[in-house]
Amino acid sequence: MSGPARPEPGFSPERLAFFTDAIFAIAMTLLAVELERPEEKELASARALGSFLAEHRGSYLAFALAFVLLWSVWRRHHRLMDRIGGLSKAFTGWHAPFLLLVAFLPFPTAVIGASIGNPLAQTLFAGTMAAMVFCEAALKDVSGSTGLVTGDPAETHRHAGESWGVGLWFVLSAGVAWLFPYAFVLWFAAPLAATYGGALISRLRTAPASHPDPYDGDVPRT
Protein backbone atom coordinates (compact mmCIF):
# COMPACT_ATOMS: atom_id res chain seq x y z
CA MET A 1 0.00 0.00 0.00
CA SER A 2 1.56 3.29 -1.08
CA GLY A 3 1.66 6.29 1.25
CA PRO A 4 0.43 9.78 0.49
CA ALA A 5 1.97 11.49 -2.52
CA ARG A 6 4.94 13.67 -1.65
CA PRO A 7 5.55 16.99 -3.43
CA GLU A 8 8.39 17.25 -5.88
CA PRO A 9 11.64 18.32 -4.13
CA GLY A 10 11.73 22.11 -3.91
CA PHE A 11 7.96 22.45 -4.26
CA SER A 12 6.67 22.03 -0.71
CA PRO A 13 3.99 24.64 0.15
CA GLU A 14 4.76 24.40 3.86
CA ARG A 15 8.48 25.16 3.43
CA LEU A 16 7.71 28.12 1.16
CA ALA A 17 5.19 29.48 3.67
CA PHE A 18 7.67 29.13 6.56
CA PHE A 19 10.42 30.84 4.58
CA THR A 20 8.11 33.70 3.58
CA ASP A 21 7.00 34.18 7.19
CA ALA A 22 10.66 34.41 8.24
CA ILE A 23 11.42 37.12 5.66
CA PHE A 24 8.41 39.15 6.75
CA ALA A 25 9.37 38.80 10.42
CA ILE A 26 12.92 39.98 9.76
CA ALA A 27 11.78 42.91 7.61
CA MET A 28 9.23 44.06 10.20
CA THR A 29 11.89 43.86 12.92
CA LEU A 30 14.38 45.84 10.84
CA LEU A 31 11.85 48.66 10.62
CA ALA A 32 12.40 49.28 14.34
CA VAL A 33 16.16 48.78 14.10
CA GLU A 34 16.33 51.69 11.66
CA LEU A 35 14.81 54.10 14.20
CA GLU A 36 17.22 56.69 15.62
CA ARG A 37 18.05 56.13 19.30
CA PRO A 38 18.49 59.07 21.71
CA GLU A 39 22.01 59.60 23.00
CA GLU A 40 23.07 60.63 26.49
CA LYS A 41 22.55 64.33 25.89
CA GLU A 42 18.97 63.73 24.68
CA LEU A 43 18.27 61.70 27.82
CA ALA A 44 19.57 64.39 30.16
CA SER A 45 16.16 65.98 30.65
CA ALA A 46 12.52 65.58 29.68
CA ARG A 47 12.74 68.68 27.50
CA ALA A 48 15.76 67.37 25.62
CA LEU A 49 14.11 63.99 25.11
CA GLY A 50 10.88 65.63 24.02
CA SER A 51 12.74 67.73 21.45
CA PHE A 52 14.47 64.60 20.16
CA LEU A 53 11.19 62.70 19.79
CA ALA A 54 9.53 65.65 18.07
CA GLU A 55 12.46 66.01 15.69
CA HIS A 56 12.18 62.36 14.64
CA ARG A 57 8.39 62.14 14.49
CA GLY A 58 8.59 61.44 10.75
CA SER A 59 10.58 58.28 11.46
CA TYR A 60 7.92 57.01 13.87
CA LEU A 61 5.15 57.73 11.39
CA ALA A 62 7.07 55.93 8.64
CA PHE A 63 7.70 52.96 10.95
CA ALA A 64 4.04 52.63 11.91
CA LEU A 65 2.85 52.97 8.33
CA ALA A 66 5.36 50.46 6.91
CA PHE A 67 4.62 47.99 9.72
CA VAL A 68 0.87 48.09 9.07
CA LEU A 69 1.39 47.75 5.31
CA LEU A 70 3.73 44.79 5.72
CA TRP A 71 1.33 43.23 8.20
CA SER A 72 -1.57 43.52 5.74
CA VAL A 73 0.48 42.05 2.88
CA TRP A 74 1.60 39.18 5.12
CA ARG A 75 -1.97 38.44 6.23
CA ARG A 76 -3.18 38.30 2.64
CA HIS A 77 -0.29 36.02 1.69
CA HIS A 78 -1.01 33.85 4.73
CA ARG A 79 -4.62 33.40 3.67
CA LEU A 80 -3.51 32.54 0.15
CA MET A 81 -0.99 29.93 1.30
CA ASP A 82 -3.62 28.29 3.51
CA ARG A 83 -5.54 27.54 0.29
CA ILE A 84 -2.57 26.33 -1.75
CA GLY A 85 -2.59 22.60 -2.42
CA GLY A 86 0.64 22.50 -4.45
CA LEU A 87 3.28 24.64 -6.10
CA SER A 88 4.31 25.39 -9.65
CA LYS A 89 7.50 26.86 -11.03
CA ALA A 90 5.73 30.13 -11.88
CA PHE A 91 4.19 30.46 -8.41
CA THR A 92 7.49 29.68 -6.71
CA GLY A 93 9.42 31.97 -9.06
CA TRP A 94 7.20 34.98 -8.35
CA HIS A 95 8.20 34.70 -4.69
CA ALA A 96 11.76 35.80 -5.53
CA PRO A 97 10.92 39.41 -6.51
CA PHE A 98 8.10 39.48 -3.97
CA LEU A 99 10.37 38.64 -1.03
CA LEU A 100 13.20 40.80 -2.40
CA LEU A 101 10.90 43.82 -2.13
CA VAL A 102 9.70 42.80 1.34
CA ALA A 103 13.31 42.60 2.54
CA PHE A 104 14.14 45.93 0.85
CA LEU A 105 11.25 47.94 2.35
CA PRO A 106 13.09 48.94 5.58
CA PHE A 107 15.48 51.05 3.48
CA PRO A 108 12.89 53.33 1.79
CA THR A 109 11.08 53.46 5.14
CA ALA A 110 14.23 54.88 6.76
CA VAL A 111 14.59 57.33 3.86
CA ILE A 112 11.09 58.76 4.15
CA GLY A 113 11.47 58.78 7.93
CA ALA A 114 14.43 61.15 7.53
CA SER A 115 12.69 63.30 4.88
CA ILE A 116 9.04 62.38 4.62
CA GLY A 117 8.15 65.42 2.49
CA ASN A 118 10.84 64.70 -0.11
CA PRO A 119 9.13 63.70 -3.40
CA LEU A 120 11.95 61.32 -4.38
CA ALA A 121 11.80 59.64 -0.96
CA GLN A 122 8.04 59.19 -1.32
CA THR A 123 8.49 57.86 -4.86
CA LEU A 124 11.04 55.31 -3.63
CA PHE A 125 8.70 54.05 -0.93
CA ALA A 126 5.57 54.10 -3.09
CA GLY A 127 7.40 52.39 -5.96
CA THR A 128 8.64 49.64 -3.66
CA MET A 129 5.16 49.07 -2.26
CA ALA A 130 3.57 49.13 -5.73
CA ALA A 131 6.03 46.56 -7.07
CA MET A 132 5.53 44.37 -3.99
CA VAL A 133 1.73 44.42 -4.30
CA PHE A 134 1.93 43.78 -8.06
CA CYS A 135 3.97 40.64 -7.27
CA GLU A 136 1.30 39.68 -4.74
CA ALA A 137 -1.37 40.11 -7.42
CA ALA A 138 0.63 37.98 -9.84
CA LEU A 139 0.91 35.21 -7.23
CA LYS A 140 -2.87 35.21 -6.81
CA ASP A 141 -3.51 35.20 -10.55
CA VAL A 142 -1.03 32.37 -11.13
CA SER A 143 -2.47 30.27 -8.32
CA GLY A 144 -6.02 30.81 -9.56
CA SER A 145 -5.24 30.15 -13.22
CA THR A 146 -3.20 26.98 -12.68
CA GLY A 147 -5.50 25.27 -10.18
CA LEU A 148 -3.16 25.55 -7.20
CA VAL A 149 -5.84 26.91 -4.87
CA THR A 150 -8.64 24.98 -3.26
CA GLY A 151 -12.12 26.39 -3.57
CA ASP A 152 -13.36 28.85 -6.16
CA PRO A 153 -10.57 30.27 -8.39
CA ALA A 154 -12.82 33.25 -9.19
CA GLU A 155 -12.49 34.38 -5.59
CA THR A 156 -8.69 34.29 -5.88
CA HIS A 157 -8.85 36.34 -9.08
CA ARG A 158 -11.10 38.83 -7.30
CA HIS A 159 -8.52 39.18 -4.54
CA ALA A 160 -5.87 39.63 -7.23
CA GLY A 161 -7.91 42.52 -8.62
CA GLU A 162 -7.84 44.14 -5.18
CA SER A 163 -4.05 43.84 -5.10
CA TRP A 164 -3.74 45.34 -8.59
CA GLY A 165 -5.91 48.23 -7.37
CA VAL A 166 -3.68 48.90 -4.35
CA GLY A 167 -0.56 48.76 -6.50
CA LEU A 168 -1.98 51.28 -8.95
CA TRP A 169 -2.92 53.53 -6.02
CA PHE A 170 0.71 53.59 -4.89
CA VAL A 171 1.83 54.38 -8.45
CA LEU A 172 -0.64 57.28 -8.48
CA SER A 173 0.69 58.56 -5.15
CA ALA A 174 4.24 58.51 -6.50
CA GLY A 175 3.19 60.89 -9.28
CA VAL A 176 1.24 63.13 -6.91
CA ALA A 177 4.29 63.39 -4.63
CA TRP A 178 6.00 65.66 -7.18
CA LEU A 179 3.06 68.07 -7.02
CA PHE A 180 2.00 67.79 -3.39
CA PRO A 181 4.53 67.27 -0.53
CA TYR A 182 1.98 65.45 1.63
CA ALA A 183 1.04 62.87 -0.99
CA PHE A 184 1.93 60.16 1.52
CA VAL A 185 -1.49 60.68 3.14
CA LEU A 186 -2.90 58.82 0.12
CA TRP A 187 -1.27 55.65 1.44
CA PHE A 188 -3.73 55.59 4.33
CA ALA A 189 -6.53 55.19 1.77
CA ALA A 190 -5.05 51.94 0.37
CA PRO A 191 -7.93 49.84 1.83
CA LEU A 192 -10.40 51.96 -0.19
CA ALA A 193 -8.30 51.37 -3.30
CA ALA A 194 -8.54 47.64 -2.64
CA THR A 195 -12.31 47.75 -2.19
CA TYR A 196 -13.39 50.09 -4.97
CA GLY A 197 -10.42 49.93 -7.33
CA GLY A 198 -10.28 46.16 -6.98
CA ALA A 199 -13.98 45.85 -7.81
CA LEU A 200 -13.51 47.99 -10.92
CA ILE A 201 -10.47 46.04 -12.10
CA SER A 202 -12.21 42.71 -11.51
CA ARG A 203 -15.21 43.92 -13.50
CA LEU A 204 -13.02 45.03 -16.39
CA ARG A 205 -11.10 41.76 -16.39
CA THR A 206 -14.23 39.62 -16.45
CA ALA A 207 -16.23 41.73 -18.92
CA PRO A 208 -16.78 39.86 -22.21
CA ALA A 209 -15.32 41.38 -25.32
CA SER A 210 -17.83 43.55 -27.09
CA HIS A 211 -18.35 42.44 -30.70
CA PRO A 212 -21.34 44.00 -32.49
CA ASP A 213 -23.66 41.56 -34.13
CA PRO A 214 -23.77 42.37 -37.87
CA TYR A 215 -27.37 41.13 -37.94
CA ASP A 216 -28.56 43.52 -35.24
CA GLY A 217 -30.89 46.19 -36.57
CA ASP A 218 -33.83 46.29 -38.89
CA VAL A 219 -32.46 43.88 -41.49
CA PRO A 220 -34.08 40.48 -41.03
CA ARG A 221 -31.83 37.45 -40.57
CA THR A 222 -31.81 34.76 -43.20
Score class of each variant (00 low, 15 high):
residue 2 S to W: 15
residue 3 G to T: 14
residue 3 G to V: 10
residue 7 P to N: 10
residue 7 P to L: 07
residue 7 P to E: 04
residue 8 E to D: 14
residue 8 E to N: 13
residue 9 P to K: 04
residue 11 F to E: 06
residue 12 S to H: 14
residue 14 E to Q: 13
residue 17 A to L: 10
residue 18 F to L: 15
residue 18 F to C: 12
residue 23 I to N: 13
residue 26 I to N: 14
residue 27 A to I: 03
residue 29 T to R: 08
residue 29 T to I: 07
residue 32 A to L: 12
residue 41 K to H: 15
residue 45 S to N: 08
residue 48 A to E: 12
residue 48 A to F: 03
residue 50 G to F: 07
residue 53 L to I: 10
residue 56 H to M: 03
residue 59 S to C: 09
residue 60 Y to E: 04
residue 61 L to D: 05
residue 66 A to D: 07
residue 69 L to H: 10
residue 69 L to E: 12
residue 74 W to N: 10
residue 74 W to K: 07
residue 75 R to N: 14
residue 76 R to F: 08
residue 76 R to C: 09
residue 82 D to F: 13
residue 83 R to C: 03
residue 89 K to N: 13
residue 91 F to S: 00
residue 95 H to I: 09
residue 96 A to K: 08
residue 97 P to A: 04
residue 100 L to R: 06
residue 102 V to G: 07
residue 104 F to A: 13
residue 105 L to W: 01
residue 111 V to N: 08
residue 112 I to R: 06
residue 112 I to P: 02
residue 114 A to P: 01
residue 116 I to D: 03
residue 117 G to E: 14
residue 118 N to P: 05
residue 118 N to I: 01
residue 120 L to F: 12
residue 120 L to Y: 11
residue 127 G to N: 10
residue 130 A to I: 03
residue 134 F to K: 01
residue 136 E to C: 02
residue 140 K to D: 02
residue 141 D to S: 02
residue 142 V to M: 01
residue 144 G to W: 00
residue 145 S to T: 00
residue 146 T to F: 02
residue 147 G to H: 03
residue 148 L to A: 00
residue 148 L to R: 00
residue 149 V to S: 01
residue 152 D to A: 04
residue 153 P to V: 03
residue 155 E to V: 06
residue 157 H to V: 02
residue 159 H to I: 10
residue 161 G to P: 00
residue 162 E to P: 02
residue 167 G to W: 00
residue 171 V to F: 05
residue 173 S to L: 07
residue 174 A to T: 00
residue 176 V to N: 08
residue 176 V to G: 01
residue 176 V to D: 10
residue 176 V to P: 04
residue 179 L to I: 11
residue 180 F to T: 08
residue 180 F to I: 14
residue 180 F to Q: 11
residue 183 A to Q: 03
residue 183 A to L: 03
residue 185 V to F: 11
residue 187 W to T: 01
residue 189 A to R: 06
residue 189 A to H: 07
residue 190 A to I: 02
residue 194 A to S: 09
residue 195 T to P: 03
residue 195 T to L: 14
residue 195 T to Q: 12
residue 196 Y to Q: 08
residue 203 R to N: 05
residue 205 R to L: 07
residue 205 R to Q: 09
residue 206 T to E: 07
residue 207 A to N: 10
residue 211 H to A: 14
residue 212 P to H: 09
residue 214 P to H: 08
residue 216 D to M: 15
residue 218 D to C: 12
residue 219 V to C: 11
residue 220 P to I: 13
residue 222 T to N: 15
